[in-house]
C-alpha cells in the first residue's frame, strides 16, 4: 500500500505542475493583463506608464522566466502576492476563503437532503395524490430553474421585498460576531443553493421508494401485519436511500459550481467570489494559487477515496 500511495503522490505532484503550467499558459493567452485590468479606459494612461507598472511587477520578463520564478517560489510554499490587493499574500488569502465556501455548500446540501428526502417519501407514499403532484411540479421547477435566475429572484423576493434576510455578505458590517448574524446571512444563499439539489433528490427518492414498495419483502412485511408506517420507514426507506446516497455524493461537485455563482450574487466571501474577482482583474498570482490549491484538494480526495475503496473492498487491488 505504501509504495502505491507514494507513487500516487508523485503522480499528483506532476499533475499539479502540469495544471499550473496549463493555467499559466491559458492566462497569458487570454487578452489583457493585470495592468490592462487596472486602467479605467475613461481616464487614460500612457503606455509608457503602463510599461513601468508592468516592469515593477515583473510582467515584462519572458514567460518561461516568469513561470519558473513562480514555480520556484511555490515549491517553498510561497504563492506570492496578489497584484490587485496591496501586499496580501496569496496563500492565506486563498485558505481563508475555503471555510466560507464549505459552510455555504454544506448548509445548502443539508437543507437539500432534508427537504428532498422528506418530500420524496411523501410523494411516493401518496402517489398520484395532490401532494405528490404538487411536490413533483415544484421539483420540476427546481430542476429546470437555472441557478442565476433563482439566485436573483430569491434575492429580490426575500431581501428586497420581504426583507426576511440580508441581501449579501457573511456578517453585518461593523457588528460584533454572532452566530445568529452569521445564520441570518447564510440562510438565504444556502436555501437558494439547495433548490436544484433538493428537487433532484426528491425525484430520485420518490422513484427509488416506489420501486422498493413493490418488492416482495415489503409485501411480506405487510402480510405479517406490520403497521404501514413501519413498513415504509423500516423496510422501504432504508433500502430506497441507497441510490439517493450515491446521487448526493455525485452532486457535491455540482454544488461547488452553484456555490461559486451564489457567492458572486450574495457577495459571500468564499473561493468562488475570490476567483471571479481575480479573473475579472487578471490577478495572476491569485488565480494560480487558488487553482493550485483546489487542484491539490481534488488530487488528495481522489487518492483518499481510492485508498478507502481498497480498504473496504479486498477485491480491489491498488498496488
Amino acid at each position: 500500500m505504501l509504495p502505491y500511495i507514494l507513487r500516487r503522490l508523485a503522480t499528483g505532484l506532476l499533475m499539479l505542475v502540469a495544471l499550473s503550467m496549463l493555467v499559466f499558459v491559458l492566462l497569458r493567452l487570454a487578452p489583457g493583463d493585470p495592468i490592462d485590468a487596472y486602467i479605467n479606459p475613461n481616464v487614460a494612461m500612457s503606455q509608457a506608464e503602463m510599461d513601468a507598472l508592468r516592469a515593477r511587477l515583473g510582467l515584462d520578463q519572458p514567460l518561461p522566466m516568469q513561470y519558473l520564478a513562480w514555480l520556484r517560489a511555490a515549491a517553498t510554499g510561497d504563492l506570492g502576492y496578489s497584484i490587485q490587493r496591496n501586499g496580501v499574500r496569496v496563500l492565506p488569502l486563498v485558505l481563508e476563503r475555503i471555510g466560507p465556501t464549505i459552510l455555504l455548500m454544506a448548509a445548502g446540501l443539508v437543507i437539500a437532503i432534508l427537504i428532498g428526502i422528506a418530500a420524496g417519501i411523501l410523494s411516493a407514499v401518496r402517489r398520484n395524490s395532490p401532494t405528490d403532484i404538487g411536490f413533483s411540479v415544484i421539483a420540476f421547477f427546481g430542476i429546470s430553474s437555472p441557478a442565476f435566475l433563482t439566485a436573483i429572484l430569491g434575492l429580490y423576493l426575500f431581501s428586497v421585498v420581504l426583507r426576511w434576510a440580508p441581501s449579501g455578505g457573511m456578517l453585518t458590517p461593523g457588528a460584533p460576531f454572532s452566530v445568529g448574524d452569521l445564520l441570518s446571512h447564510l440562510i438565504l444563499p444556502a436555501c437558494l443553493l439547495s433548490i436544484g439539489h433538493a428537487a433532484l433528490i426528491m425525484r430520485y427518492m420518490r422513484a427509488s421508494l416506489l420501486e422498493v414498495l413493490n418488492q416482495d419483502y415489503v409485501r411480506t412485511a405487510r402480510a405479517k401485519g406490520v403497521k404501514e408506517f413501519w413498513v415504509i420507514m423500516k423496510h422501504a426507506v432504508r433500502n430506497a436511500l441507497l441510490p439517493v446516497v450515491t446521487l448526493i455524493g455525485s452532486t457535491i461537485g455540482i454544488a461547488v459550481g452553484g456555490a461559486i455563482f451564489i457567492e458572486s450574487v450574495f457577495n459571500w466571501p468564499g473561493m468562488g467570489l475570490l476567483l471571479i474577482n481575480a479573473v475579472d482583474t487578471r490577478d495572476y498570482p491569485v488565480i494560480m494559487g487558488a487553482t493550485l490549491i483546489i487542484g491539490a484538494c481534488v488530487i488528495v480526495v481522489n487518492l483518499l477515496t481510492d485508498i478507502a475503496y481498497a480498504a473496504i473492498d479486498p477485491r480491489i487491488q491498488v498496488a
Partner: peptide
C-alpha cells in the same frame, strides 16, 4: 428512524426560522 427524521427536520426548520427572523444587528 421516522422520529429521528422528524427531529432533524424540526431542528432545521427551527434554525431556519431563527435565522430568518434574526434582524440585522441594531446599530
Amino acid at each position: 428512524q421516522m422520529k429521528t427524521l422528524t427531529r432533524a427536520i424540526s431542528v432545521a426548520a427551527l434554525l431556519g426560522a431563527t435565522a430568518l427572523t434574526t434582524s440585522v444587528a441594531a446599530q
